[in-house]
Design a protein around this nucleic acid. Structure first.
Lengths: 229, 229
DNA sequence: TAGGACAATTTGTCCAAACATATTGAAAAA
DNA sequence: TTTTTCAATATGTTTGGACAAATTGTCCTA
């Protein structure tokens, strides 16, 4: 017997995948469905609302609910904290600072972070290891106008990311994935050949419209990032 | 005056980002919050439930609600349909079939798709162009045991993906992102140098526990995939 | 015929109350 | 002291009812 909103979700999903309600099909309205299922309209509403959020249904007032013609589903995945990523793979994590210095922000960085011409940034280069082998190269720039206290920090023991997560825990993030060939520095640190194809993740972080940090993470060759949906 | 669950969400979010409720902090229980906000508990419940889903709060029966210590936020992004991806960038889309043939599934593919030793698959190689320039190389294998009618299909005009979306609209998907160097075939089709770093997306599709298709999409050099959260 | 006012419909949200369920912590028993 | 039992508590879900908001289609009018 159907009772919970989960049961209803599952049943509707079955009807969709089973072909009872093909793409483009209109569903009965909430009131009718509630009667069919023998439950309150709010229960049906929650089931349908969640299916719509997951991209399977399309809902509009007055016109009703229909199965999406082109099921625009979306992948969700957790943003990996490098330490956890390594440890969850069952490997020993190690961090090492390569370099830390204050510099004038170069032009390309000013563009990405919307910085002024004279902006100073803290540049931090570091490596992350899994079981002693190079795992990820981190190149980071921190906006010293937004976070002046970063200049006093010592990132030789603890990664900049962990400090930032504590200091500016909630922020807006823009992510980009791409691929890039290893240059001389990267190939040296990652222990791979120059030109090797590396998976790369770039992340810009903002807090209250101000750029906090930009980080470019280059993974060792062969790294894969997976998601399900 | 606070009234809607959205207002409550916004207010709670402000209290979190503003430091009133720092990471790890316990929130008052729903009943108390409902009284504070002058609304029903169900309204507070919805606000907090959604914030928890978004990864900002942690909720447990009896113990209550707390701000996540390490805000495990997740990125969501839409799965790109190549045609739309190109057209939304304002470019002219063009598709071209390179090759289509039935083959015995090689060992590595059998492993990925859980196929039997004698499984036959339809191999489809195609190219996607944006404004006449190579945009993406598609290498796809379709399980003919699950979809025998694929063998009769002609993918010279319409991409295999569009046919599959119509034929098996709802399926489970496993995604993987990585980087790979262009081999001879890829560099030829994409018009880039051999060894160039390419962003790659691999997708396995399942329907009712049966492998439908595996596709490997290799983007032209320099491609970026972005998300916000 | 074209445009505007309006009523009907459907989803969206809220409420107050009740019961369900997981979990904790304390009391009771071994 | 350790284990078991049990009640208290906070979130999870459902109900039936109500009103809000968006949108559609119709009818009326110019």
């Amino acid at each position: 017997m159907i009772k919970t909103y989960r049961d209803i979700k599952a049943d509707v999903l079955d009807k969709i995948t089973g072909g009872t309600w093909p793409p483009g099909e209109m569903l009965p309205n909430e009131a009718d469905l509630a009667e069919d299922y023998g439950c309150a309209r709010a229960t049906v509403n929650r089931a349908l609302r969640e299916l719509a959020e997951e991209g399977l249904l399309e809902r509009k007032r007055k016109s009703g609910t229909r199965v999406r013609a082109a099921p625009q589903r979306q992948a969700r995945f957790d943003i990996p904290l490098t330490r956890r990523e390594v440890e969850e793979a069952g490997a020993q994590y190690r961090y090492a600072l390569v370099m830390q210095q204050v510099v004038q922000a170069p032009e390309w960085l000013r563009a990405r972070m919307s910085l002024s011409k004279t902006a100073r940034v803290l540049e931090v280069i570091a490596m992350h290891y899994a079981d002693g082998a190079p795992f990820q190269h981190e190149a980071r720039w921190i906006n010293l106008e937004a976070l002046p206290q970063a200049e006093e920090q010592d990132f030789s023991q603890r990664g900049a990311n962990e400090w930032l997560v504590e200091t500016v825990p909630f922020s807006d993030v823009e992510l980009a994935f791409s691929a890039a060939g290893a240059d001389a520095g990267l190939s040296h640190h990652l222990g791979c050949e120059a030109g090797a194809a590396l998976f790369r993740m770039e992340r810009s972080t903002w807090f209250e419209e101000r750029a906090i940090t930009f980080v470019r993470l280059s993974y060792r060759p062969g790294h894969r990032m997976t998601a399900r949906y």
